[in-house]
Deep mutational scan, measured.
Amino acid sequence: MAAGGDHGSPDSYRSPLASRYASPEMCFVFSDRYKFRTWRQLWLWLAEAEQTLGLPITDEQIQEMKSNLENIDFKMAAEEEKRLRHDVMAHVHTFGHCCPKAAGIIHLGATSCYVGDNTDLIILRNALDLLLPKLARVISRLADFAKERASLPTLGFTHFQPAQLTTVGKRCCLWIQDLCMDLQNLKRVRDDLRFRGVKGTTGTQASFLQLFEGDDHKVEQLDKMVTEKAGFKRAFIITGQTYTRKVDIEVLSVLASLGASVHKICTDIRLLANLKEMEEPFEKQQIGSSAMPYKRNPMRSERCCSLARHLMTLVMDPLQTASVQWFERTLDDSANRRICLAEAFLTADTILNTLQNISEGLVVYPKVIERRIRQELPFMATENIIMAMVKAGGSRQDCHEKIRVLSQQAASVVKQEGGDNDLIERIQVDAYFSPIHSQLDHLLDPSSFTGRASQQVQRFLEEEVYPLLKPYESVMKVKAELCL
């Protein structure tokens, strides 16, 4: 049975990233139509530049190519590739079939990587351009969430054990800070992308030097003109047959890092959902379990974690691919890159769409948070109580021993009897502590235990987050809708 299948058929496997999760716009960027249309555009740009620099290419040939950029006979191309065992030459023939007058000058002087690699770089750039505003929107939604809850005390956790208090907004800023680093890295790697350009079979530009009869300047002009037509500021000066596969490492490393950030955020949300302090959106008709109707599973956060793990592992592909590119190139890269580049971007696209949807509907339960604080705060307040007693004339050592005994009794009630923490009640009825009984409410005010959390939130948002989001103001209103 021949390899390949009808990918629109229910009898043929289709990647869930495309069929179930990723956005239509990201799927289109990695589609065959987008790819092969870009090949034709690159052939047109090459012909236009070659004509401008004096090669015998007519206006009629150029116009014929322009008129057929979208006229792609995919069936013919597939048949040609089956016959020739070469995808680029299959599309040269297919393009030439609908451009008979231009057929002889299509791909003039070029090698397969002229269309293959340059198209990949265009796709990487455009895919990054799709991700950047999506990530900015996630940051914006979380920034709104953090600002609104900047002063809401909550129990902090280290080692997932109760620690000092923080605020809900401050905790959210930990998430935002990681995503801001990801946004900066995505922008950097996007701006650092260079075009492969017009380089020939081993990167020496020998074929173009021959076409222009040894004119170095025209060869350099050709490279520059096509690079500018493709919208790049610069091209690699040095290439082998391909652009260095280190570029793929750079791009997928940034995406993998984004995956790590999203995994951490969504894990926190899942843990908070278990504590009943916070939940992701839950639709009115949504079913959490087929057997347990009360369940409210954090399905979206779980999906993000599941896909983020996949995204983090994909960076190993370009690392290994770059390491086995012998001399000017081997074909070890080809099949692998067809999979890992598309999957990385479709996965990143999915987790950003999902995280935006989550961040637009996060639900906080202040009463649950308050109750958990009441359970733990008495123990945390013991040092403040000791200091207040010393100020009232008591002995630190005597007070410490009193607190120690009462704390152990209260802990026994919590752990052995399943009761509430009654340390404060014990202190309130103990005559030894009568000098500070009137101060206990103040000493137990949760806001006095959150330090500068709310001020940190305000400063972080104003100095770091809002300036970073400013270039994306025009796209901030787009909502994230999930079908599944």
Rank of each mutant, 00 (worst) to 15 (best):
F379Q: 03
Q397A: 08
E228V: 11
S454E: 06
L174T: 02
H310D: 05
A143G: 11
A78W: 00
L132F: 09
R196M: 06
F212H: 05
Y21F: 09
E25M: 09
H310I: 14
T166I: 10
E25C: 15
T204Q: 01
T204A: 03
T227S: 05
S448I: 10
I269N: 03
R14I: 13
E220H: 00
K224S: 01
W45Y: 14
L183S: 02
A235H: 04
V219E: 10
E280S: 14
M312H: 02
M76G: 06
Q416N: 03
C113A: 02
L444S: 01
L152V: 07
S23V: 11
N353A: 09
G361V: 14
L53E: 03
F95P: 03
C340P: 07
S434V: 09
Q63I: 04
V168P: 12
P467E: 09
I373C: 15
I176L: 03
V247N: 00
Y21N: 14
A392P: 14
N384R: 10
L314G: 04
E148P: 07
Q375A: 15
V168D: 05
P10A: 12
R374E: 04
C113Q: 15
N297V: 00
I237C: 14
F30N: 06
R452S: 12
I249R: 01
G451F: 05
A143E: 06
Q408A: 05
G109M: 03
I269V: 01
A388G: 08
S261H: 08
A344E: 06
F157I: 14
D87Y: 09
V324F: 08
I287N: 09
A308N: 05
K101M: 11
R196H: 15
R188I: 02
M387P: 13
A49V: 09
D120V: 06
R14A: 06
A348C: 05
D317F: 10
G5D: 09
S412P: 06
R459D: 08
S31D: 09
Q184M: 01
E25V: 12
Q416P: 11
L155P: 01
G451Q: 02
K470P: 07
R137W: 06
L183A: 06
S253P: 10
S434H: 06
I237E: 11
C98K: 12
G200V: 07
I436C: 11
T158L: 11
F30A: 09
R245N: 12
F433N: 01
T202C: 10
H91N: 02
